[in-house]
């Protein structure tokens, strides 16, 4: 236990350092984009936050399957933590996207596949939290949570394709070949480096937050047990 919390502390320190480095690169090192100006810099943490959100939802579906297979309550804590963190970062992703869209697309919001899918995903996982709130028995809560995490995750790509069949105006910066989409730009090496560091930083941030969230969940479970013991 002692060794483990020292590893966690180490992870926290590394996370802080990489986050500081990523922030420095975004603010100072990365060049200002030629046409969009400073707002383009929102892109780095916008995509990184979306990445963290997806990591969270992916981790939750893995934890859900693992829970159903093993019935270890620790998997449930992983799933819940991952979804909570995923929700926070997906929200950051949506709001920053909206802030970027205002000057570039001249609107806060469009019904583009990615925006719409991101929002529906946010609703799916908000529903996950509401489902859990409605169940008192911890075992059933974990079981239903795992099932819904799986069902919700499967629906995401289908939602995306259903809206994709309309035309998209969202720029595909990585690997996208269509320069006519408004707001797209090609990354200079300095931009690419900044982007890479931001992704790494947010991955560390995700790992460290998830670990803390799991420990919080374990503490919560201990308190629950104490309560039950006192009642009898």
């Amino acid at each position: 236990m002692k060794a483990r919390s020292r590893v966690l502390l180490g992870l926290d320190v590394v996370t802080l350092l990489v986050m500081a480095a990523a922030t420095y690169m975004v603010f100072i090192y990365a060049p200002v984009e030629r046409t969009m100006g400073l707002v383009q810099k929102v892109f780095y943490f916008h995509v990184a936050a979306g990445w963290t959100g997806m990591l969270g939802f992916l981790a939750a579906v893995v934890a859900g399957i693992a829970y159903l297979a093993t019935r270890k309550s620790s998997w449930d804590l992983v799933g819940l933590g991952a979804i909570e963190i995923g929700l926070v970062f997906a929200l950051i992703n949506i709001i920053t996207g909206s802030i970027w869209a205002r000057p570039i697309w001249n609107t806060w919001w469009t019904w583009d596949p990615r925006l719409t899918t991101a929002t529906i995903m946010e609703l799916v996982y908000a529903a996950y939290l509401m489902l859990r709130q409605g169940i008192e028995d911890p075992e059933r809560r974990a079981r239903f949570g795992a099932v819904y995490a799986i069902v919700g995750f499967i629906s995401v790509p289908l939602t995306f394709f259903s809206i994709r069949i309309y035309r998209t105006i969202h720029p595909v910066v990585i690997g996208g070949g269509d320069p006519t989409v408004s707001g797209s730009f090609s990354m200079t090496p300095a931009m690419g480096a900044t982007f890479g560091v931001a992704l790494v930083a947010f991955s560390f941030l995700f790992a460290s937050l998830l670990w803390h969230r799991i420990r919080l969940g374990q503490l919560g479970a201990q308190v629950e047990q104490l309560k039950l013991k006192l009642m009898h």
């Binding site: 200002v32 984009e33 030629r34 046409t35 969009m36 100006g37 400073l38 707002v39 383009q40 810099k41 929102v42 943490f45 916008h46 936050a49 963190i85 926070v88 929200l91 950051i92 709001i95 920053t96 802030i99 970027w100 205002r102 000057p103 941030l205 937050l209 803390h212 969230r213 919080l216």
Partner: peptide, 27 residues
Amino acid sequence: TPANTLGYFIAGYTVIFGTMLVYLVSL
């Protein structure tokens, strides 16, 4: 010359760090 979008840049990063801070405080 690049468009002047400093306000949106500041708003974006305020939201990013603000939301993360709120989540940390909640933890």
